[in-house]
């Protein structure tokens, strides 16, 4: 059998590989946008928003990803507009990850010394201007390693799409292994496909972390 599995089913592997990449990238963008909003809610002085932000983060972080995906898979269909496995899975991934990203961004903003905010404000910048030009640019540098780690998690977590027939790498791997009856070989190749994505990212995150450590 050996490499013939890879060559015979290369098309399916690639289709799944693409599904995994697409879902992870879309979920990263979604979770970054959503996470930024929640992070701002978490640090704002408006009480209602702060409670919402805290409640959101605590709830989402403490339930399994698979459950979040099921909520988006079965929930909308109960309301009459079903989402397919890929969409429900990707939205679920984005929502789940956004809670972690919100916390990372909040931590990054908190890490910028408070004096800077006061100095900028007293020199005449508005709150928003200070955030945009002073705080956020510094915070983002600090946030990049945890964001990178979340992206790696996203890629790995996108494998839950297989459970709702979401056309990812694991989904097609199942189709391949039920046809070849060679689970071991099929999944070793799947592992290689995942590593091709995750190892360079891990490496990049480490380099960036090193750079930050040297600076501070």
């Amino acid at each position: 059998m050996d490499f013939s599995i890879l060559t015979d089913y290369f098309g399916l592997y690639l289709e799944g590989f693409w599904g995994t990449i697409l879902s992870s990238v879309l979920a990263l963008i979604g979770s970054f946008l959503l996470g930024s909003v929640i992070a701002v809610f978490r640090i704002t002085t408006v009480k209602g928003l702060r409670w919402f932000g805290t409640g959101y983060v605590e709830f989402v972080r403490n339930i399994p990803l698979l459950l979040v995906v099921y909520i988006f898979y079965y929930g909308p269909s109960a309301l009459g507009f079903p989402l397919d496995g890929f969409k429900a899975g990707t939205i679920g991934l984005a929502v789940y990850t956004s809670a972690f990203i919100a916390e990372a961004i909040r931590a990054g903003i908190m890490a910028v010394p408070k004096g800077q905010m006061e100095a900028a404000r007293s020199s005449g910048l508005s709150y928003i201007q200070t955030m945009m030009h002073v705080i956020l640019p510094q915070a983002i540098k600090l946030v990049i390693p945890p964001l990178g780690n979340q992206f790696i998690n996203l890629i790995k977590n996108s494998s839950v799409l297989t459970i709702v027939a979401g056309m990812d790498l694991m989904y097609f791997a199942d189709s391949i292994s039920t046809e070849t009856y060679r689970t071991f070989d099929t999944y070793i190749f799947v592992a290689v496909f995942y590593l091709v994505l995750t190892l360079p990212l891990s490496y990049g995150v480490r380099v960036w972390e090193r750079r930050l450590q040297r600076k501070y």
């Binding site: 059998m1 050996d2 490499f3 071991f184 070989d185 070793i188 190749f189 592992a191 290689v192 590593l195 091709v196 190892l199 360079p200 490496y203």
Partner: peptide
């Protein structure tokens, strides 16, 4: 990293 990927292929080979 390179080694790891290589090792996986070797493992795949052994499995076979």
């Amino acid at each position: 990293s390179v080694l790891m990927v290589a090792a996986l292929f070797v493992i795949a080979g052994c499995g076979n």
